[in-house]
């Protein structure tokens, strides 16, 4: 391991002298700066240009705080469900053999490929108040579309692959031996899962969950269709930003953007930190 790293370092030195490594890096960094950093800074600047006081009052415009709260709690609740179901799905796919497994495995990727707007549309078609199923549920007092459950549903659809695909490879690496060892030592299936499997999966589940949450905070295309966007009730933060832009309040839109961006960026940093730690641990444990 150590020799390899040294090797690479030498190579890097060699490369720098040999051809224009700095030039390539320059291209990469300028690209990122132009595409990501400058635009984001522009939004930050817009939100803060009239001082923190205005930034603060922008965040308390009508519906703003409600939208933020709605976004946060729906994302959190949905993340919990997705973490549980995603882990279970990964476990079933990795550990069990059953008919239809290959199809299931392919279906998990479908939400990556389908436009989120179409996702929203499908949910409205299925559960909208004028539709058969949605109407029947509505008659029984269960409103899904144009209410918060539809937000949860859309987010679950969109983020489904994130936890599954984070947990799956770790579970594959975790030898069946460990579970069998636990069984032969007298542990029940639940004890085995709780004390042997779950601790090994926890880092992967956490990063899958964080990604789910971060992705959910920003979701727009599906929610704008299913939520009904009633200010103060079913209007989420991204939809609120849209409203502020269309209403001609760019500074207020920037303020809310800044809040969401800060959250997203913190989550990404946290995720990166977790993954680095995990990688170091795994290198340590490699036999």
């Amino acid at each position: 391991m150590i020799t390899h790293t040294r090797h690479q370092r030498e190579f890097r030195g060699l490369m720098a002298g040999r051809w224009n490594a700095g030039g390539l890096r320059g291209v990469a960094i300028i690209y990122l700066a132009f595409m990501i950093v400058i635009p984001l800074s522009a939004v930050a600047n817009e939100g803060l240009k009239d001082g923190l006081g205005n930034f603060w009052s922008d965040l308390h415009r009508f519906g703003a705080m409600g939208a933020l709260r709605l976004t946060l709690w729906t994302a959190a609740l949905m993340t919990v469900i997705n973490v549980i179901m995603g882990t279970l799905t990964a476990y079933v796919i990795v550990r069990y053999q059953f008919p239809g497994k290959a199809i299931l495995n392919a279906l998990i990727d479908l939400p990556i490929a389908i436009p989120t707007l179409v996702t929203g549309l499908m949910i409205v078609i299925l559960l909208g108040p004028q539709e058969t199923l949605g109407g029947w549920l509505g008659d029984h007092g269960i409103d899904i579309v144009f209410a918060w459950p539809a937000i949860i549903l859309a987010l679950l659809f969109i983020t489904f692959p994130l936890v599954v695909r984070a947990v799956q490879p770790v579970l594959e690496e975790l030898e069946v031996d460990q579970e069998e060892a636990a069984y032969s030592l007298g542990a029940s299936p639940w004890q085995t899962f709780r004390y042997v499997v779950l601790p090994a999966l926890l880092p992967a589940i956490t990063s899958g969950g964080l990604l789910t949450f971060a992705r959910a905070l920003g979701e727009f295309g599906s929610i704008v269709i299913v939520a009904g966007n009633i200010p103060g009730k079913t209007l989420t933060a991204p939809v609120h930003i849209l409203g502020e832009i269309e209403g001609g309040f760019p500074r207020s839109a920037s303020a809310m953007s800044l809040v969401l961006l800060t959250l997203s960026f913190s989550l990404i940093i946290l995720l990166d930190w977790l993954n680095t730690r995990r990688k170091i641990e795994r290198d340590d444990n490699s036999v």
């Binding site: 984001l40 992705r215 727009f220 991204p238």
Partner: peptide
């Protein structure tokens, strides 16, 4: 870009 809201 994975996590920034499209609206933003």
């Amino acid at each position: 870009p994975f996590v920034v809201s499209p609206v933003i």
